[in-house]
Design a protein around this nucleic acid. Structure first.
Lengths: 336, 336
DNA sequence: TGCTGTAATGTAATCCATTACATAAAAACA
DNA sequence: TGTTTTTATGTAATGGATTACATTACAGCA
């Protein structure tokens, strides 16, 4: 591989000039710039990134931490993240922490060692201590996306989860449902708490508060939806919920299966509403009514925010994107 | 950040000794090693990776190129890849090429510039020229997984696609089906050609060759399965296939939807068999019979193979893993 | 004790791009 | 034309770890 020295030789100038021609063209004569450009093409030079990183103490790498790469919900967010990052000359290092604290710590440790320039955090399943002290210094290069920590003021891109849950429940109420249950994500997760809050407040406002055991805790997976679905539906029809609001499409789809197993007709006997609008939600039976999040927008915004922080720009601390209710065939007017 | 100099100072030795204590402990007295270890802990040292990479001309990074991150089929493979890579001290850089040649080229260019040490290639949607000349030199750090190029002898980890297709068709034949169609992936894709070959040869062997238009080309997506499904099913029952073998679960699920739309009962009127055994296949209606690939095994094997190549070990050129037919509810004995 | 061979450690060059500082060249001005 | 500014370029130090080569310490043996 040719180095900057070879280019300098070919262009008849010093390495400093070559470097400047690349990094700060305005500091160099038009003529030299062209000579350098020609020399670069001639010798086939491309800069050694390790050397540059060493000298500049940066890595042009952004770590993206998520709980589970396999979850299709994140795919589109990642696409958005990468698009913005690549355009700005950054690479994206995907980190799956699998709820493993030591793993998360490992990724955070890339920051002080200049192996990564910033972090986008899409899970709260990391030790709070890792981010705890960062909120004060508002140029710590960390952005939260989709999720957030209670009481920590970190730059965040997410939706209004409470409002989204209210929308979902409001829609079910408008269809005449009064017995509305929910299958949630982990209850210690702030966004799930927000959704639960939206769910309960909307039901109370309407005068149909839900019994405590109609708030069933899941973990966003198919299986959780299925299991909690069976528990919710396996009782006499009169005491059964007529509608269920799920915190993920996967769980909603698990619930659909539970309903089939128990011979509960969707949507005639049971309305189901999911969350996320994953690709699959259009292909299940019946097609799933769901709350759509602007996934690629979340990704793009989060990365832009982080790059702005790295560029020492002044940034807004919170960015709230809007959700959309997508009505398909898993919801219908309440029969009773 | 403390550097190796600080450690040397604290341990009362030279930087060379510190470096050796870390990289080649056997070259150093037990006593010094302990002194160095203590010094490292004391000053809180961790090596500067950029400096190391620069000196060693390596990056401890493996690029994984795939056609589409969003495809759940790859998630588990990635998990396997990462597990092995991390254990060996390597990072994984995921590259989505989205059928974009220039993007793929960009990732390949990371190799000569020492930004990446090796590539795992899981798509043939890259310019053949990028790998063309590599086959001769059997220490070019590239491993193919799942896919391969016709006529290029590159280290490869994959399944026997022809055999898998034969298994699927054989199973359908054993259920009494004689009119068996297929929805394929891109026909210029070697693994799809293998599957088509398995499909046609097995049908011919049995004496029920399929008409040309029963080999419907798709692209692995839900939508393709749906559209080709409608085309296949939208004809009088007597001239319709009674079974369809799909090259992906997503397409099979798209097909299930087409069948519902056209009022074709699965499995009584139509048997459907998918490929890949994605998580979703257990939650659709009916649950999908499918061919399962050992996904995490593929990932792990591919990464091990690549690391062996990097370690200049002698490696086998081909590694073939076995598939499994998973019978669920989308297939049944032929009614006629 | 003195010599030889091996093991342990140190010195300094190296990887390559960047940039502070120095110098030379050109432009601006009197 | 001579002096001052400005602009362009060069020189050399720098970032931090690794490692070839040089040196020292020590064990083994006669």
């Amino acid at each position: 591989m040719p180095t900057i020295k070879d280019v300098a030789l070919a262009a008849g100038c010093s390495t400093a000039t070559v470097s400047r021609a690349l990094a700060a063209p305005e500091k160099v004569t038009e003529a030299t710039r062209q000579r350098v450009a020609a020399a670069i093409a001639q010798v086939g030079y491309s800069p050694n990134v390790a050397a540059r990183n060493l000298r500049r103490s940066e890595s042009k790498t952004i770590v993206v931490l998520l709980p589970d790469i396999a979850n299709p919900f994140f795919s589109e967010i990642i696409a958005g993240l990468e698009e913005v990052a690549h355009r700005a000359g950054y690479q994206v290092l995907l980190g799956d922490c699998e709820n493993d604290a030591s793993r998360a710590r490992g990724y955070f440790d890339l920051l002080p060692t200049n192996q990564a320039d910033g972090i986008i955090l899409m899970t709260t399943e990391v030790p709070r201590s890792l981010v705890q002290d960062r909120q004060a210094s508002n140029n710590f290069p960390l952005v939260m996306a989709c999720e957030y920590f209670d009481g920590l003021a970190l730059p965040t891109v997410c939706i209004d989860n409470r409002l989204a849950a209210e929308k979902a429940v409001e829609y079910l109420l408008s269809l005449g449902h009064q017995r509305i249950a929910t299958i949630t994500g982990p209850r210690n997760n702030p966004i799930c708490r927000d959704r639960i809050l939206g769910y309960t407040s909307e039901l109370e406002r309407a005068g149909y508060p839900a019994p405590a055991d109609w708030i069933a805790e899941g973990d966003f997976s198919f299986l959780a939806g299925y299991q909690q679905g069976r528990a919710l539906l396996d009782r006499p029809e009169a005491t059964r919920p007529t509608a269920v609001f799920c915190h993920s499409d996967e769980m909603a789809i698990g619930l659909l299966k539970a309903a089939r197993d128990l011979n509960v007709q969707v949507p005639t006997e049971l309305s189901v509403i999911g969350f996320d609008n994953i690709g699959f939600s259009e292909y299940c039976e019946p097609e799933l009514t769901t709350i759509s999040q602007p996934r690629d927008d979340i990704g793009r915004s989060a990365m832009r925010l982080l790059l702005d922080i790295l560029a020492k720009k002044q940034v807004p601390l919170q960015q709230t994107l809007t959700t959309q209710l997508i009505v398909r065939d898993s919801t219908a007017r309440c029969a009773q």
